[in-house]
């Protein structure tokens, strides 16, 4: 009998501390699978965020450093500039990347730093207990928007992919979801592509993963998955926002002509 799927080598065979129905575990596995398939586990450095995923190194078996809240892209810049042969990635949540670390992600992307950012967007602060995130939806209730997010007071959800796609330097930007098996397969392709582009030394790559936080959303895991599809994807449409590799291929094959 042939083995079609096994536990990724880059992922420790342990159960995680993440809540049932949380997207972190799925995203971790997809990263581990991509590192395995590219054969780069031994030369990869991860940058762990502040938040639930700070313990990422308990699950993903690579050299890792913790960054201060929001600073992962700056820390990754230092790492990659010293070790251009290493595969460097940051793993960041929505508060980390789109609130306290907005400057760091925009400027790392704008410099075209040769690392990969995996951005988990679950529209809420998880670790601190369910406060409003920069990506919290309008009218969404959180600990700090108990009456729902009101644009007149809190503004609108920030769209990281769209914002970064205004910059010239980023090589690859895609938004995916982990809410259904089909979406997970699509997410896997995107994460693999991002790391593969880094292996090929193409430039800055960014994958936003629409994720879930059943605990702080106050939903069952299936309801959370459903809510992310029905509500989050309306505000954060899935898709490719930049793929210079594909543009290059089209030009080379004459598909644009």
């Amino acid at each position: 009998m042939q083995t079609t799927k096994s536990h990724p080598k880059s992922l420790f065979p342990v159960s995680t501390h993440y809540c049932a129905g949380c997207g972190h575990g799925i995203a971790h596995r997809l990263i581990a699978e991509a590192l395995d398939e590219l054969g780069v586990q031994d030369r990869t450095i991860g940058v762990a965020p502040v938040g639930c995923a700070v313990l990422m190194y308990n699950y993903i078996d690579v050299d890792t450093i913790e960054a201060a809240h929001g600073r992962a892209p700056a820390t990754a810049t230092g790492l990659k500039r010293v070790r251009p042969d290493c595969i460097v990635f940051t793993y960041q949540g929505d508060g980390d990347l789109a609130a306290i670390g907005t400057a760091e992600i925009i400027h790392a992307a704008n410099r075209g730093e040769h690392f990969t950012t995996i951005f988990l967007n679950n529209a809420i602060y998880g670790m601190t207990g369910g406060q409003m995130a920069p990506t919290t939806l309008v009218d969404q209730k959180t600990e700090t928007t108990p009456y729902g997010r009101k644009p007149s007071n809190e503004g609108f959800p920030i769209k990281a992919c769209e914002m970064l796609a205004t910059l010239d330097a980023p090589y690859y930007i895609e938004r995916v979801s982990v809410a259904t098996p089909a979406k997970i397969r699509r997410a896997k392709k995107a994460i693999f592509k991002a790391f593969n582009y880094q292996v090929e030394e193409r430039g800055f790559t960014f994958v936003e993963v629409i994720s879930t936080c059943p605990t702080n959303w106050g939903m069952s895991p299936p309801d959370a998955m459903k809510w992310s599809v029905e509500h989050m994807e309306k505000v954060f449409p899935l898709g490719v926002f930049r793929d210079k590799g594909a543009e290059k291929d089209r030009t080379e094959t004459g598909a644009d002509k």
Binding site: I45, T75, G78, R83, C86
Partner: peptide, 26 residues
């Protein structure tokens, strides 16, 4: 060597941290 004019002093010190973690004199 590497010179980066960072986006802020906060970013600069965190770049130093990353470079030091990778073994560079930063």
């Amino acid at each position: 060597g590497v010179f980066i004019q960072s986006e802020s002093e906060i970013a600069a010190i965190n770049m130093v941290m990353g470079a030091a973690a990778a073994g560079g004199r930063a």
